[in-house]
Amino acid sequence: MRPILMKGHERPLTFLKYNRDGDLLFSCAKDHNPTVWFADNGERLGTYHGHNGAVWCCDVSRDSGRLITGSADQTAKLWNVQTGQQLFTFNFDSPARSVDFSVGDKLAVITTDPFMELPSAIHVKRIAKDPTEQTGESVLLIKGPQGRINRAIWGPLNRTIISAGEDAVIRIWDSETGKLLKESDKESGHKKTVTSLAKSSDGSHFLTGSLDKSARLWDTRTLTLIKTYVTERPVNAVAMSPLLDHVVLGGGQDASAVTTTDHRAGKFEAKFYDKILQEEIGGVKGHFGPINALAFNPDGKSFSSGGEDGYVRLHHFDPDYFNIKI
């Protein structure tokens, strides 16, 4: 395959997200402007201006009408996807790290970093249908876990919130009361910071990637460990194919060590694993720095990766990818 290279960002990529139809790709980077691209040919559709810091995460509503972004400028913003117009700003006292729309797009979960003696927190906001009625009030505020929460997503039927972060523990919270329901046990869980979390397309299980050089597959309801994928690099990003039983892990050596070693030693490929057999299928090379973000097109026929090198690489699979056998 010949990947499409998109160089719209001047700083390292942080997050990638496809809309539900798979025709738009949203990219966030440490420069301040989230960008939307056409996912088929990589043409830039527009940029969202307004943030004043690195943008860590974004999510798009099911109808591709609203975009929510979380940024290090201590805000999360709602945008009109089509025009790039800012609709609302949620202000916090610390950087917003992760955002996720609930099923139905009526709620959003936003996590904030520990900052200036403030602990990290998970906020649940109500998203109004009409942006003029939007308020910044939190429906629910969860505090407790130590260290940064790198990712928080909604569980099935919006009943739970799944969070993971620097303390390497994965937690499931009740989204109504904010009570802690389940915690991954230290024995089978990750040993180091969990950097990324991706739900399967049906939401029945999810994948976490960690700096302990492994990725783990968990059951969403019971939080039991299903599979472990061991690799030889810290994992910064994970994605799951919606079509085949494949998982993709991206990562690489620490960004600070990149310039000191040969690019082959950095292990900057996106690694494909068989979801069930936990065996490596192959690697896709190309980035000149660690991979920070991975996303699968909802049709499963293409995926994109974003790297510390500032590039988004959009890969449309060759036909022979679909009959790979181990």
């Binding site: 395959m1 010949r2 990947p3 499409i4 290279l5 998109m6 160089k7 719209g8 691209w37 040919n41 990589g42 043409e43 830039r44 490929e269 494909f272 299928i281 192959g282 690697g283 896709v284 090379k285 190309g286 690489r313 890969h315 699979f317 060759d318 990818y321 790979i324």
Partner: peptide, 12 residues
């Protein structure tokens, strides 16, 4: 901004 890679990348 958008280029097609000159290099053929294979799933290795």
């Amino acid at each position: 901004l958008t280029m097609v890679s000159t290099e053929e990348i294979l799933l290795e």
